[in-house]
Each structure stands twice: as C-alpha cells, then as structure tokens.
Amino acid sequence: MFDFIRKPEIWRAMDAGFMAEIPGKLSFQLKTMQDLAVYAHLRDYKDMDIAEIGGGDSRILPQLAKSNRCFNIEPFEGADNGPKSEVKIAGVENIRTTVGRFDPVLKDASFDVVFSVSVVEHVVDPEFPAFLEDNIRILKPGGVMYHAIDMYLSDSPTDFWRNRFDMYRKAVTERDDLEPVGLIGAAQPAFTPDMASNPDQIMYGWKTISPSLNDLRQIAQSVSLLIGAKRR
C-alpha cells in the first residue's frame, strides 16, 4: 500500500460507524482521518501482538487492546509535541524507547503489527534507514506495518517533498524483505481535491505550536500518506 488518504475511504469508515469506536480526544482534523484510515485496517485483528510507535495518549490502542496484546513504544519525553510524562492506558504496556535505536528492550520478531500516526514525518532523512530497519526487525515474519505520514502538498511539489515522497515509496516497493499490502496508488506528490486534508481552522491553530511552517501552511495542504507493507 502506498497512497494518500482520500475522502472516499474516510467516508466509508464513517458510514461503518468507526468514529464511535475510537475515543473522541480530538476535534475533527487530519489526525482524526488518519486514525480512521489506520483503524479500518486493524479493527478486525484478534489475539495479535500490536505496537504503536510514538502513540503518546493513543486514540487507537484502547479499542485494539480489547482483543489483542497491545504496546505503546513511546519515550514520553515531550518530543514533537508528544506527552512529557507517562500515559497509562488500560490493557496497553508502555515500552519507553524509540524505534531506530535497535534497543534490545524491543526484541527481534516481537509484533504481528506495528503502526504509527503522524510520527514518521518527524524522522529526519539521514535517520530514516535505521528507523525502517528497526521497524522491520521487530516485526514477526509475515507481520505488517502501517504508517500514516503527514505531508504538505501544493500544486507544484518542492524538491523536499518530492524527495520525501520517493524515499517512502522506495521503502515499500524496492526492498526484498518487504512486500506491499494493498495497492500502490499515488504517482506524484501533488495535491488533488479528493485527498483528506486539514481544515483551515486547524491549520491556523498550529501557528502557535510550530510557527516556522506558517508560510507553508498558507500555500499548501496538510495531507497524509498511508503506507502498508508485510515482512517477507
């Protein structure tokens, strides 16, 4: 799987009532749509070992933990607007580390599913290969990963976002140890009207949290890639 999260899949998830199954901790925004898109792929899993990377005060794990063994891989150090103190969720075990460090606390082939929402975009380019390798390492053979990744797109992609897009695409399509789950869709990082995106008031609200992106937010849409792959 490699495509942008699009309105039809979000509307299908809403029609199916998935919104009522995920704790309503947010106003409706891109993260809500990312949650829905990821949850739609995971909600029917039973008796699995599932880990969220950088889950913080997770909105998805509480529901998945009712039928699975769930883990939150999160240092709780406040990075990238995450929680600065430990958040405990019923039925979820916290593992206080970061993927990409090859920390032995995360054992090889531990999880059937690893996923993240709005995390991978914070992994800088030089560190992405280690993040991906560690992600694969902790997956069981046949295990799957899903990552919803924030991107800013305009009608004319910049080199930065084009390079990011290509890096993510190669991670899913050009490795011998991974195979895509689902279709390979998006061909270029340019905004189209069918993409799920952040409402303008949410974009405005981010001004005080990360003001360095204010100029970009006025000329680009905040959207999300969804990538899915299985460890061979």
Rank of each mutant, 00 (worst) to 15 (best):
Y45F: 15
Y45N: 05
D47F: 08
D47A: 13
D47C: 04
M48A: 15
M48W: 09
M48T: 10
D49K: 13
I50Q: 09
I50H: 09
A51W: 08
E52N: 12
E52D: 05
I53V: 15
G54D: 05
G54W: 02
G55N: 10
D57K: 14
R59L: 06
I60W: 01
P62A: 13
Q63I: 00
Q63S: 15
Q63W: 01
Q63L: 10
L64Q: 00
L64E: 02
L64I: 11
A65Q: 12
K66G: 07
N68R: 04
R69L: 06
R69F: 06
C70S: 05
C70W: 05
F71C: 12
F71N: 13
I73H: 06
E74M: 10
P75W: 09
E77M: 12
E77C: 03
G78C: 02
G78I: 00
G78Q: 07
A79N: 06
D80V: 03
N81E: 10
G82K: 04
G82F: 00
K84D: 11
K84S: 11
K84P: 00
S85G: 01
S85V: 09
E86C: 06
E86D: 05
V87W: 09
I89V: 11
A90R: 03
A90E: 09
G91I: 00
E93H: 12
N94A: 11
N94D: 04
I95T: 06
I95V: 15
R96E: 14
R96V: 05
T98M: 07
V99D: 00
G100Q: 07
G100T: 05
R101I: 05
F102V: 06
D103I: 03
D103E: 02
